[in-house]
């Protein structure tokens, strides 16, 4: 019930100015990007908002080399409607984004705010599977993998997330995403994103990432190796899915038990890999 009492609202026009508000890590200061999270779940001790709409970019740039740079203030709707993102990795981004929340949220939620929030997400497993990187400003700019951003808790330290970068994709690469929830607009009780790169005739890179376990995201590296070694035949996919089930840690929650979530890891991984194989074959 008790909502924070906000006393100050800043609108810095440069990243440096924004940084000056948040660099000391005061728990009473929060960066405001889309607003969809802070309006309803800011801790009661927050008294200062730093609105970064004027200092962070909201455009998507498809670079000539095939990589894509997404400004942190880009909304999910702008991402969903973007052609370059639509064709990247067999269209996995719009596949995920079209079921993300609902239009009333996607029209205002930003990619930067979402990632910095670091909660249960459909977006994070996809970005992990795509080897996405983030650019973080902490007095100077650093680029790091999204995996490192979370693994090293950079998202909890004072920082500004300024952009997301999808790396140069190999020619024969496809990804797919599946989510499992009670209704069409609901938290996932599990999600899976798989990406497979073909390097000549062999699997080059394989990514199998599960989210909402209820952890944010986990890679099934044993299953990834299995696919690299055995390819994408139906039996190999089944075996990889069983491995994923064993290595992905799940927890009991009120919406699903750990046992059921583990079962879903296997079913969804198998389905997701099968879909990736179909997409690769269709290319």
């Amino acid at each position: 019930m008790s909502r924070p009492s906000i006393a100050e609202y800043h609108r810095p026009s440069t990243v440096e100015e924004a940084w000056s508000h948040v660099s000391d890590g005061s728990p009473s200061v929060r960066i405001l990007s889309g607003g969809t999270d802070l309006t309803i779940s800011a801790p009661p001790d927050v008294d200062t908002l730093v609105d970064v709409a004027r200092c962070l970019d909201h455009s998507i740039e498809a670079r000539r080399d095939g990589s894509i740079r997404i400004g942190a203030m880009t909304t999910f709707t702008d991402m969903l409607l973007n052609d370059a993102l639509g064709s990247y990795a067999a269209g996995v981004m719009p596949e995920m984004l079209s079921d993300l929340g609902n239009p009333l949220l996607r029209n205002i939620s930003t990619i930067g705010g979402h990632l910095a929030r670091g909660k249960l997400s459909d977006v994070v497993p996809v970005l992990v599977a795509l080897d996405a990187e983030v650019v973080v400003y902490q007095g100077d700019e650093k680029q790091m993998t999204i995996q490192r951003y979370y693994d090293e808790s950079v998202h909890r330290s004072p920082h500004l997330l300024t952009e997301v970068v999808l790396p140069v994709a190999v020619k024969r690469s496809a990804a797919a995403f599946l989510r499992f929830a009670r209704t069409a607009f609901d938290f996932p009780m599990l999600n899976v994103c798989c990406r497979i790169d073909f390097d000549g005739h062999m699997v080059g890179a394989a990514r199998i990432v599960c989210g909402a376990t209820p952890l944010r995201s986990q890679r099934a590296s044993g299953a990834e190796s299995w696919i690299r070694e055995h390819g994408l035949e139906a039996r190999a996919i089944e075996a990889a899915a069983r491995r994923a089930r064993e290595e992905i840690h799940t927890r009991d929650g009120w919406v699903a038990s750990a046992e059921y979530r583990s079962h879903l890891v296997e079913v969804l991984t198998s389905r997701c890999l099968t879909e990736v194989a179909r997409r690769l074959a269709a290319r």
Binding site: Y9, R11, T39, I40, P103, L104, N107
Partner: peptide, 19 residues
């Protein structure tokens, strides 16, 4: 609570007025 913001529907409960 939906309103249009520059023509796009948005949940007005999830925005600060200043935004």
């Amino acid at each position: 609570c939906a309103v249009l913001l520059d023509g796009r529907a948005a949940a007005s409960c999830l925005l600060f007025a200043a935004q």
